[in-house]
Amino acid sequence: MSVEVQHVSKTFGSYKAIEDVSLKVHSGELVALLGPSGSGKTTLLRMIAGLEVPDPPANQDEGKILFFDQDVATRSVSERQVGFVFQHYALFKHMSVFENIAFGLRVRPRSQRLPKAQIDQRVKELLQLIQLEGFGNRFPLQLSGGQRQRVALARALAIEPKVLLLDEPFGALDAKVRQKLREWLRRLHEQVHTTTILVTHDQEEALEVADRVVVMNHAKIEQIGTPEEVFHNPASEFVIDFLGSVNVFSGRHVEPSSEAKTDGAKIYVRPHELQISKESLGSASISAQIQRIQRAGTSAKVFVHTNKEQNVRVDVPIHEFQFMDLEIHQQVFITPLQSHVFSPDYTI
């Protein structure tokens, strides 16, 4: 089931939450909407679910939300058959885990309702899928946060939704549990293959789980691409800045082919794209002094202060770092191996 959003806008009073956004999610894909809070990602998700109504469109071709090429913009939440998972689980507290998962199957009109035995069977399968067999009689309050979110996911999957929508599903959990659930969600997606849209503000989560990432900022989409594309070929300053740490240098960029010069350009270099050495490696090298070294992790983080009064972070793989014999207060040179330049008339 593909999902398509065409020129959709949403304003709350005078505040623009979504401005003329278009997006296509292919059938069976897992797409992450990534952005800081207030970027409009949750509003977009809620509009796809039908929990929020888009602004009335200016003309016929605008303001459409298509599920498999059918316009659902005027359909209610229940008619859209979406599975929605909330950040704070929204489990029914007075119902057992079993009853929570069975809810969507039991509230169907009598003519469409499955026989009791089949409902029980389906719930058992789902409990197995979320690895909580034997937890059917527990109540939500007796479960951990991670377990609750898995129950919420099973409850949404029970109605065999056409689209699965996850609103910051791991946002309320601690780091270790998040990591585990992230991997679990990816494996689950490979099993069930429901078209899934996930909202998150955690770039690591988006890059790790999604087939494609939609980076959002200020009510608009900044870039759509595979995790690789958005990380290595960021389309804007915002994207490079939001996806991981980056050092910003200002200076003159010289286009190698045409010798055209751009003054006042901002040059973005990620910490792992800088080389650190004791001798200058040419005109691109900048002289700097080591301020602090942080060795925990797969790479050592070396914080230096350049002769242009700038603080820069350089990441050195730990196995290389061991042979470099670097010390605090030592004079070194840093050289960019790769860079991303953004200026009004020049973008990579």
Binding site: A49, L51, V77, S78, Q81, V82, G83, F84, F86, H88, A90, L91, F92, K93, H94, F103, G104, V107, R108, A152, R155, A156, A158, I159
Partner: peptide
Amino acid sequence: SEQEWAAISLGASAWQTFTKVTLPN
């Protein structure tokens, strides 16, 4: 109102949402 929204997204009618989710709460 998240529990109510969850019930509605699972296909419950307004009356079912009120009697099965809101009222017990």
